[in-house]
Amino acid sequence: MSISVLEALAHFKKPVLVLFAGLAGFVGGIWVNGTYFGDASPVQPIEFSHRIHAGENEIPCQYCHVYAARTPVAGVPSVEKCMGCHRSVAIDKPEIIKVAQYYADHEPIPWIKVYDVPDFVHFTHKRHIQAGLECRECHGPVATMDRITRQQPLRMPWCVDCHTKKEVVNGRDCWTCHK
């Protein structure tokens, strides 16, 4: 196969081959950027640590991400919810003071999305959790991370591989995930 491709290439004029090389480079460049230079670990407005909350304090994921098992979206806790504990816990820490300030100003905290699926994808947490998936199977060892780092590229092959492996009913139909 590879030989025949080389043989085929040999029939092209050199400028065409140069063009091919350029094109190959272009595609490669896009891939390298996407894979290694995507911001998988953005700096958040509050230095929130999952390690402290989920690791040291062993707070279950769904205590804060209450909607994960019930709706398509896992949901971030309301600022009110943060304050539920931090009215009395660690109130003098500078990051908590920031949270309290947001609450006092009646402003939401502008968290930066780490796991963002494109708008044309229909993804539902509910179905995945009800199918018995653990959070860490996609989100990694969150309890060890101070700042969240994206563990998966969220690309289609990754979705389809898992759907195939787990023999999801209609798991490979386009319209199961695309909308």
């Binding site: 911001d39 953005p42 949901g75 971030v76 806790p77 309301s78 600022v79 009110e80 947001y102 609450y103 009646h106 402003e107 939401p108 905290i109 502008p110 968290w111 930066i112 999305k113 963002d116």
Partner: peptide, 8 residues
């Protein structure tokens, strides 16, 4: 950058 805006 996409944001994740919580309810207050």
């Amino acid at each position: 950058t996409e944001f994740l805006i919580p309810q207050v």
